[in-house]
Design a protein around this nucleic acid. Structure first.
Lengths: 221, 221
DNA sequence: CGGGACTTTGAAACCCTTCAATGCCAGTGG
DNA sequence: CCACTGGCATTGAAGGGTTTCAAAGTCCCG
């Protein structure tokens, strides 16, 4: 239950599988390389400017990639949910810091060296990996489009729709936001107050209606 | 001098090199695959939702990747300058339309099939190609950071600094903007008037001082 | 029960957009 | 040659949106 630190020599890391013996699907082969760590809220996963040695994937919880602005506020450039890979870096260097958002966030780690071997040997694996990169690029595209909206209500509305299609847990009219208002504000480059006001504005106009749950808000479009 | 259409069967395409005979550096090998086309201002390079068949690179001029917003305005998500590769798509599909911005823009085209062969055969080439993808991701990161600023003057200021490090033509205190105010506005998600006002605001405060040139503005930080 | 973090609401100041009008420049046609 | 046109850039004023500062209210947990 206690999360360990982000460095590579901690205790809770486990091999999720013994090295797979028989040829399996690419995701399964990937899985066989994975090493799991757990992080607590706001704990660093990797630092900015660090060398890229692993790719990461969120198993449970959530994480962010972010930079600190000149005024000290945090700007989130990527919101990572279960299933998302991250940590590719730019020219083998992390351009942003990565942190866990939720308490008890589980992250898988994949050594880049092994991924490169895999890609060099198996073209299907190479395709899989470039698909993963594509997904990361797609998240950035979505954020750019959201940040490009003019009013805060539009930003928050787009954000909710985007989250809905990402967490998309079968039920289409109900959305459990896994992040706080502060996290949303950092992501949308708005103040927390404006996020809150936008949500109540959308509620008043009947676009969404709110319910409440343990530690998270539920919204319905 | 007249730009041809974007389809694949036009006349002005030329092989920039005969197929290279001897083993050369990776960029040179890439170059050997290139096919060049020329576009006029606002001419489409590839459509949204199209299948990715080629990668592209700006040789001269400039281009944009963009989406149309609900209100009909254009949102530029990527500004392509000479040397920039683009058109990787998401899962083999173009998520945005690409257009030339400048008159007489020259674009190189690289068939994806050949790039894949190259990557499969030569790990150095594969590394080169993933570096190219990294650059594309880096541009998106920069845009997200710029869009994350609060005031228009900050956005425009960040934009100028960003353009300076990108066009970085030796001279560090002089910057020739290769794009119009409208293009800047589409890129920064601001109105043209605000962009103009921000620039004059920065001038008044002595942050930049403006000169004038044929069809382009020059600025000094 | 109290502390602390998160959320919501209010009011004033500031910023951006919109609508409108003017100025500038290049290319065009009389 | 010069007026005209169209695109781009700049500036003004009104209106609306966002931030900031401030203060409650809510919920969880020790």
């Amino acid at each position: 239950m206690d999360a360990n630190r982000a460095d590579l020599s901690t205790s809770e890391q486990v091999w999720t599988h013994e090295r797979a013996a028989s040829p399996r699907s690419i995701p399964q082969i990937l899985e066989a390389l994975a090493l799991v760590s757990r992080y607590q809220r706001d704990e660093e996963i990797y630092p900015r400017e660090g060398t890229v040695e692993c790719w990461y994937r969120v198993i449970s919880g959530a994480a962010r990639r972010f930079a600190l602005r000149a005024d000290g506020r945090r700007q989130t450039v990527d919101l990572l949910l279960p299933g998302d890979f991250f940590g590719f870096g730019v020219h083998a260097t992390h351009a942003f810091t990565a942190e866990a958002i939720a308490a008890d966030t589980a992250i898988e780690r994949y050594p880049v060296s092994r991924l490169e071997c895999l890609a060099a040997c198996d073209p299907r694996a190479a395709r899989e990996l470039s698909g993963i990169i594509s997904d990361g690029m797609s998240r950035l595209h979505s954020l750019v489009r959201i940040l490009g909206r003019t009013t805060a209500e539009q930003k928050v509305g787009s954000f909710l729709l985007y989250m809905q299609e990402r967490v998309g847990s079968g039920v289409t009219d109900r959305l459990a936001l896994p992040v706080s208002r502060y996290d949303i504000a950092d992501y949308l480059a708005l103040s927390v107050e404006t996020v809150s006001r936008s949500l109540t504005g959308l509620k008043d106009r009947g676009v969404i209606c709110a319910s409440r749950s343990t530690r998270n808000s539920h919204h319905r479009s």
